[in-house]
Computed example of a mutant assay.
Amino acid sequence: MPVFVLVLVMLLAEIAVIVAVGQAIGALVTVLLLVAVSVVGIAMLRRQGMRTLTAFSDAVRNRRDPGPEMVDGMLLGVAAALVVFPGFVSDVLALLLLFPPTRAAVRRRVLRRAAARQAASPQIFVVDSEVVQPQRRDRPAPIVIESVREDRD
């Protein structure tokens, strides 16, 4: 229910802003401005999306934590949805998410919140084990090959 209320409030705000801008500068200019802002938003979305995808690939290739790049991708998805939503308020919010400095601030907040939630949740321990079948007398003993895991000391 809260999401529905948020979308309804956003829709009413968009209509109020479009009407106010239309009365101030004219209907045709308002429509052209809405189209122009959406085109600029889509162009920025494409550019920032490629940068984020490249950064994610580099993080995975270099075995770094790709969490920040994943959050950037999520924020760019939100920005894409806001660009598609017609109106000035959503376009301004989308453009804020498309600019790297403001997106970095939102990313830091999201990562801090995720770390706090993870710290509050119980830790899960996985014990690495191996199932050994009992030996039968009619078969020879199995050959055991030991492996070394790179992530363990």
Rank of each mutant, 00 (worst) to 15 (best):
P2A: 14
P2W: 07
V5F: 15
V9C: 10
L11Y: 14
A13R: 04
A13G: 13
E14T: 07
V17A: 01
I18W: 01
V19R: 00
A20P: 00
Q23A: 07
G26I: 05
A27W: 11
T30D: 02
L32G: 02
L34T: 08
L34K: 02
V37Y: 00
V37M: 01
V37H: 00
V39D: 07
V39P: 05
I42R: 06
A43V: 15
R46S: 10
R46T: 10
R46D: 10
G49P: 14
G49A: 14
T52K: 05
A55N: 03
D65F: 01
P66H: 03
P66E: 03
P68G: 13
P68A: 11
V71Q: 07
V71A: 12
L76N: 01
L76G: 00
V78Y: 05
L82A: 06
F85D: 03
P86G: 01
F88I: 00
F88A: 00
F88N: 00
V89E: 07
S90F: 02
D91L: 06
L93S: 00
L98K: 03
L98F: 06
L98G: 04
T102K: 10
A104Y: 06
A104W: 08
V106L: 03
R109M: 10
R113F: 12
R117Y: 05
Q118T: 13
Q118F: 11
Q118Y: 12
Q123V: 07
F125Q: 11
F125R: 09
V127K: 13
E130D: 13
Q133E: 13
P134V: 11
P134T: 12
R137N: 04
P140V: 07
P142C: 09
V144R: 10
E146D: 08
E146A: 06
V148Q: 13
V148F: 12
D151Q: 06
R152L: 05
D153W: 06
